[in-house]
Design a protein around this nucleic acid. Structure first.
Length: 848
RNA sequence: GCCCGAGUGGUGGAAUGGUAGACACGACAGAUUCAAAAUCUGUUGCUUAACGGCGUGCCGGUUCAAGUCCGGCCUCGGGUACCA
């Protein structure tokens, strides 16, 4: 009797797959194509359980699609540029390039034992010059197409290290290395004109039927389409060039509730005033402290300063309003100026209270009689409101209609125009960092900013850089910057900004269709393989990465690098949850937490007998030490155990907790399957038995339900069904032939999840060829329907018993049988039913 | 702050508006064993002697029927434009 030895089996079958080259993808018209892609990893050096979960899901889909007759493309690559490589170089010496490529080699070696059905011949890293050179070509085409431009933008500035910081490098408003208070500073940056596509990116969401609704909603909110009024206030005695202040509002129906004007500290008027007034300069400087994130700005204490300037209300020129500079107004959104309406906006209400500004109510709840407000009243769009300060008796019945009629009213009076705005801002792609794709332009004294010639690509990163101090080493490099102007041939300087790493990951899916092409894509290959049929990755990418990729797909169509048919990058999207683990913690002598690795904890104790505190499960992270290394799991139990457990217990979109007990239990189960099926393989034929039919019925139900589970990303449901079918098979008294048939189907159904075990048992049972290449079993619909069904009987919605009846029994007969049930009689206690609801095949409810 | 999700036994979780707790872990009992491991069989939401009662984060609503739909909260998680 063979024993389940994962190590032997897995090596054996991985070698067999490699020899048969069953995973290399080639264009073919014989079968429908299917492109399955998991978000490619950042090469941190170690794979973690989140990777195992992500790639196992993709692998199940890829293997299942292969078995259902598809020509599958399932590639893998590396999102290899980014800050961690530079940080590692600064912290431990070495070079980002060496660090990155070593990590890739390590991770590939850790990934291969998982037995994924990946076409490794298509592998690339985004830091390969062959890849980023094509990205530079793409950039130049986008520049020529008018999709790229330069403008000033605000960055986090560390005044001590004299460098730009990423948001992640700002901790509580201070630089993570210097500890200096961070300032917001303007810098000239490169931008993609993604905002030109706001409407297209928004409306095309409707066509993404196989995306999670929550992701589409998040993207729609992010794009943030709004209808409002753009108009201006005329200023009184303001500096030249500032005789009007332009304002955008989505609530023009509250215009008569205006009590102040707020402008951003970065508004041109605020900047003008700070040159004349030391107080305003000091206030603006105060406002610019802290990081650039929306969260930091929105949660900071609301600060305002009266500039002393006044504006006139557009409906009453005698009505003067003060102009404040306020730290919560973003120059990037709208016009960088607002009118404050404290009665109907909570933030304005608090601001008005703090600076003793009037609170003027323009409408009230319909059931209210007083216009005294203790907080802002923002009417729900469906609620009727009573306008106590409507314009000229205009009747706006609801908040929603109120906006539209207010816009019409204002336009008729010549006060501004109704406009549609989007919250989406252009994508700033400049980074003042080394380990990224160089932006392929030069700065010429004579010609200005000039694109590099395509034949000079790739513009490669120099290897000899000094990373020991903060800032961009490309700026400090002695020679790299020097070049000839592509236009006039004179001396010029290279751009030292590199590209945001989101650029790298915004088109890699297209590059996988022809990774060796001498242009960004090969159109014939892209035409054949695009779009990605199924994309799988974390919900944390719901907005930025996915929106940028959607933008790039369109930009690549415009520049001729994707065919018309590739309208969206990802036809179907699935967002999987995280892998979590308990945290084991003790305290040091100063009561600070000390964390311990799961492998060092046995039964709640460390090796020296110290008890640990168990903190509830959280995302696996190195700092909390609640990590489990997939490699050690594979070494002790095998890849199939890791794969099965990662999919078994939790629905794929939710977080899953890794438990040692769960992994052990999975291994036991797989050993049991191996034992049961290999015992069946050794049975000798004993003719048909009476039990054959019920086993084969169970088999067809298992085929049906496991298949449905895979099709709908209900891997946990598929696995629960596989457990149940295994239990049925192990207890079955059916004949050897029926048992063998059922066992073959069992391992076939298991093969996408545990491909190695499935191959081995398949061959022991005498299955033909590789189970990986055998067509998926099809359930016989006749075998799925039972003749007798069980109907639960409720009285007033509470279950009181059940009846077993023929499937097609008449309704009257069902009612009669239901009333005879003991529990129903007891519950009725002599009462006469008012109504009996029979849901055919489902339930009976007796109402009294 | 704002946007989006999630919350069900001791644990992970199942459930087209139709039997709440499938399947699994753990626990308990039994078989096997000199004993243990492994394996096999059974029990297992809480409460009750039983009938029954209660039960899906909290409060309220719609419905013959609500974990599921609606309104209002609470807690946790993701994102918040330079982490990837």
């Amino acid at each position: 009797m063979p024993r389940y030895s994962a190590a032997d089996i897995e090596a054996k079958w991985q070698a067999a797959w490699e020899k048969a080259e069953i995973f290399s993808a080639r264009r073919s018209v014989d079968k429908p194509k299917y492109y399955v892609l998991e978000m490619f990893p950042y090469p941190s050096g170690r794979i973690h359980m989140g990777h195992v979960r992500n790639y196992t899901m993709g692998d199940v889909i890829a293997r299942y699609k292969m078995a259902t007759g598809h020509n599958v493309l399932h590639p893998m690559g590396w999102d290899a540029f980014g800050m961690p490589a530079e940080n590692a170089a600064m912290a431990i010496g070495g070079h980002p390039k060496t660090w990155t490529y070593n990590n890739i080699a390590d991770m590939r070696a850790q990934m291969k034992p998982l037995g994924l059905s990946i076409d490794w011949s298509r592998e690339f890293a985004t830091c390969d010059p062959e890849y980023y050179g094509q990205q530079q070509a793409l950039f130049l085409d986008m520049l020529a197409a008018g999709l790229v431009y330069r403008k000033n933008a605000i960055v986090n500035w560390d005044p001590v290290d004299m460098t730009v910081l990423a948001n992640e490098q700002v901790e509580q408003g201070r630089g993570w290395r210097s500890g200096a208070l961070v300032e917001r500073r303007e810098l000239t940056q490169w931008f993609f004109k993604i905002s030109d596509m706001s409407e297209e990116l928004l409306s095309a969401l409707d066509g993404l039927d196989n995306w999670p609704p929550k992701v589409k909603l998040m993207q729609a909110n992010w794009i943030g389409k709004s209808r409002g009024l753009q108009f201006s206030f005329s200023t009184i005695d303001a500096p030249i060039g500032h005789d009007r202040i332009e304002v955008y509002t989505t609530r023009p129906d509250t215009l008569l509730g205006a009590s102040f004007i707020g402008i951003s500290p970065d508004h041109p008027l605020a900047k003008h005033l700070e040159r004349e007034s030391p107080e305003i300069a000091a206030f603006n400087a105060e406002c610019r402290k802290g990081g650039t994130t929306e969260e930091a700005i929105e949660t900071a204490e609301k600060l305002g300063m009266d500039t002393g300037l006044r504006v006139r209300h557009p409906f009453d020129t005698a009505w003067e309003l003060p102009v404040f500079i306020a730290n919560f107004i973003l120059m990037d959104y709208g016009t960088g100026a607002i009118f404050g309406c404290p009665a109907h906006d909570q933030r304005d209400f608090e601001f008005a209270t703090k600076y003793e500004l009037p609170i003027i109510s323009t409408y009230l709840p319909s059931d209210s009689s007083s216009d005294e407000l203790s907080e802002a009243y923002v009417p729900p769009k469906t609620e009727k409101v009573f306008y106590n300060r409507g314009f000229a008796g205009e009747a706006w019945q609801t908040g929603n209609e109120g906006v539209d009629s207010a816009i019409a009213f204002c336009e008729a009076k010549g006060v501004g125009q109704g406009v549609t705005k989007y919250r989406l801002r252009d994508w700033g792609l400049s980074r003042q960092r080394y380990w990224g794709c160089p932006i392929p332009v030069v700065h010429c004294e004579a010609c200005g900013v000039v694109p590099e010639k395509t034949e000079n690509l790739p513009i490669e990163l120099p290897f000899d850089v000094e990373l020991d101090k903060p800032g961009n080493p490309l700026d400090r490099h002695p020679t790299w910057r020097n070049c000839a102007c592509p236009s006039c041939g004179g001396t010029a300087l290279r751009e030292t900004d590199t590209m945001d790493t989101f650029v790298d990951s915004s088109w890699y899916f297209a590059r996988f269709t022809s990774p060796q092409a001498k242009t960004p894509t090969d159109l014939a290959d892209a035409e054949y393989w695009m779009n990605v049929d199924q994309y799988i990755g974390g919900i944390e990418h719901a907005i930025l990465h996915l929106l940028y990729s959607r933008f790039f797909a369109r930009a690549m169509q415009i520049t001729g690098h994707l065919p018309e048919s590739a309208n969206e990058p990802f036809d179907a999207l699935f967002t999987q949850g995280m892998v979590t683990h308990e945290i084991y913690q003790t305290r040091d002598d100063r009561d600070r937490p000390v964390y311990h690795l799961p492998e060092d904890v046995t039964d709640g104790k460390l090796a020296d007998g110290t008890s640990v505190t168990v903190v509830p499960s959280a995302k696996m992270s190195k700092s909390k030490k609640n990590v489990v290394d997939p490699v050690s799991i594979i070494n002790s139990y095998g890849a199939d155990t890791a794969r099965w457990f990662m999919l078994s217990d939790s629905p794929p979109e939710r977080d899953v907790e890794w438990t040692a007990a769960g992994a052990e239990a999975t291994f036991k189960h797989l050993s049991r399957v191996y034992r049961i099926t290999t015992e069946i393989a050794e049975m000798t034929d004993n003719g048909p038995r009476a039990e054959d039919d019920s086993l084969l019925r169970e088999m067809h139900k298992a085929i049906h339900e496991v298949t449905q589970g895979i099709e709908s990303f209900g891997f946990n449901a598929s696995i629960a069904r596989l457990y149940a079918f295994t239990n049925t098979l192990s207890k079955s008294k059916a004949g050897a032939s029926a048992q063998k048939q059922a066992a073959l189907v069992l391992v076939q159904l298991m093969s996408p999840v545990t491909p190695h075990l499935a191959e081995d048992v398949w061959s022991l049972l005498g299955g033909e060829g590789l189970v990986s290449t055998v067509p998926w079993p099809i359930a016989d619909p006749d075998m799925l329907i039972d003749d007798t069904i069980t109907l639960p009987i409720q009285v007033n919605g509470k279950r009181r018993g059940e009846i077993s009846v023929p499937r097609e029994l008449e309704k009257a007969e069902v009612e009669k049988a239901a009333l005879e049930v003991d529990g129903v009689q007891r519950a009725l206690d002599g009462a006469t039913p008012k109504k009996i609801i029979v849901v055919p095949g489902r339930i009976v409810n007796v109402v009294v």
